[in-house]
Design a protein around this nucleic acid. Structure first.
Lengths: 344, 344
DNA sequence: TTGTATGCGTTATCAA
DNA sequence: TTGATAACGCATACAA
């Protein structure tokens, strides 16, 4: 590969002039700029990214920290990753994947201290995530995808779970539903302080209470079977429930299967609304699932934008961004059955 | 951050001795090695990745080339990416994502020539993929995830579609099915030379013909609706079909919905076997889908291993790897209905 | 077994 | 407007 040295020789200028023509931090006359451009074209010159990084102390590499999560990353995670990588590309950055989940953060610290990345995107954030302290200590700029318990001083992009739940309940109550149950992620995820589980649970409780409605919540693992079992339990303990708000794709499909098997019609006997999901998943079900789709693409874009803003010191971007899920009404939500229907 | 210089000073040795202690390419006495180690511990020293790359002319960075595909990457793509990133990590490499799909390869070439990556993993390979020539020209080692038409001289890891189709047909014919239809990806993907579509189609035709069975193939877009329409058409044109072999998750769910709506029982009236899928997707359906799962995790691991072997010149690894999908029998495949059942 | 010195390909400082 | 030249932090050939 041709180097800057070669370009300088061919163009008959000094090496530094070539550099300045490239970076633009110093004026270069139109004439010499043209000569340099011609030399670069002729040689097919490309700046060496590594040498550039070493000299400028900026790698233009962003690291994505994601704990290799046991339940596997969700479908929207792929959208998120793709979107983040694309945004980085457009802005002249590279996205590297760091699938580390060391409890003590040893490996994460080592990676950070090698100076490969200019900043980090933190995924699967828990309410008391220890990586925040680590990143502060190492001095690496970062943006959370998610939020800790008290994230006021941090940069983050997250789903607006409060608005999402409110919109979901608005949709259901407008259809006449008053007995609504929440089918959520596992209890383990709740105990671990997993943001979505905690925040959706809290918002559900708050909004239902505000409307004078009773709060019914079921946690279950990410599997269709777990969803079936939870639904069966719900049918026994709360027979008056007419709508299910779910946040657990696999369990949602299991729940619908169980309902159908019990002779329930969807949505006539039971409405199902799946939040933090996606129309693509919704399209797999029959009848087609009404969903509220996670803004994976937007979060990827915003997270990278926020991170680059920190790195480059352009403080124009908002520190905090919250985006609600978008409602996509399909065929699993409908008017609540009339009260006379469920008297014996 | 502490540099090697600092470590050398603190340990009272020369800079190069520290370097050799780290790389191990030159013997270092136990005594000085211990002193160096102590100094490194005290300073919390980490080698600077960029400086190392510049001096050694090896970045330990692998690039993953994936065209931002219109239909979106499949669910197993996420498994693949995660697995590749993890394998890279374990081996001391980093995986960067390059979501580029420029027809002429200009952007890809620029990226490659910047010298950021030691090698490339090529995804979404088409039969006549132009990136192969590009990579050869630039001189970047690469491994295909997929295969071109004539990949004998190339390194690749791919799904063994031939074996997959054979195993699928073995399963179905063992159940007595003889009228089997293939529901595949879109015709557009076939025309574009998309490997899975082409190879599965060819294998299906070959094996069915070998068994003296008629070849029925339907292509449809990646949507449940498209699957429904295709299934409806199939019911009209080929009413004797008793088994559907599908390779198109969304369409498969649509097909099953259509069948149920037409009063068909699964698997009593129609068996459904979804290949190049995953048990996780299969678990979403009711009844639970019999699948053949794509070896995403294995391909990610093998692809990275093969690439690193090329980069490091350890030719021990196989040039070519083909892994068939694994059959996971669930509830949508069963004995073919008896012939007497479909006489009027 | 260890030390010295050069180079990797840029950026950026200091002069002119 | 341009040219030397010193970092950047490490790997490695050459000496000792």
């Amino acid at each position: 590969m041709a180097t800057m040295h070669d370009v300088a020789n061919l163009a008959g200028v000094s090496l530094s002039t070539v550099s300045y023509a490239l970076t633009g931090v110093r004026p270069v006359s139109e004439k010499t700029r043209a000569r340099i451009q011609a030399a670069m074209d002729q040689l097919g010159y490309q700046r060496n990214a590594i040498a550039r990084s070493l000299a400028s102390r900026r790698t233009h590499i962003l690291a994505m920290l994601f704990p290799a999560i046991e339940r596997g990353l969700s479908g929207t995670a792929l959208e998120f990753v793709t979107s983040a990588a694309e945004t980085a590309r457009e802005r002249g950055y590279h996205l590297v994947l760091w699938p580390v989940n060391d409890q003590e953060g040893h490996e994460t610290r080592e990676l950070l201290q090698q100076g490969l990345a200019d900043g980090a995107l933190v995924m699967e954030v828990r309410l008391d995530d220890p990586r925040v302290a680590l990143l502060h200590e190492v001095g690496t700029p970062f943006t959370l995808i998610g939020r800790t318990e008290d994230p006021d001083t941090l940069h983050y992009a997250d789903i607006d779970f409060e608005t999402t739940v409110r919109d979901a309940l608005d949709h259901l109550t407008a259809l006449g539903h008053r007995d609504i149950a929440l089918l959520s992620h596992s209890r383990a995820s709740l105990d671990a302080g997993y943001g979505p589980t905690v925040r959706v649970g809290a918002a559900f409780e708050r909004y239902m209470t505000e409307r004078g409605l009773s709060v019914v919540v079921r946690h279950c693992d990410e599997s269709a079977d777990a969803g079936r079992i939870a639904t069966a339990g719900l049918a026994a303990s709360h027979p008056r429930v007419t709508a299910l708000m779910t946040m657990n794709d696999a369990a949602t499909f299991g729940a619908m299967a169980e309902l159908l098997e019990r002779g329930k019609r969807i949505p006539d006997d039971m409405s199902v609304l799946s939040i933090v999901s996606s129309p693509r998943v919704g399209a797999l079900s029959h009848p087609r699932l009404t969903t509220m789709s996670a803004p994976g693409t937007e979060l990827g874009r915003l997270g990278v934008t926020s991170l680059i803003a920190q790195i480059e010191g352009t403080g124009a971007t908002a520190l905090h961004t919250l985006i609600p899920c978008r409602l996509d009404v399909q065929s699993t939500t409908g008017p609540a059955r009339l009260p006379m229907n469920h008297t014996p």
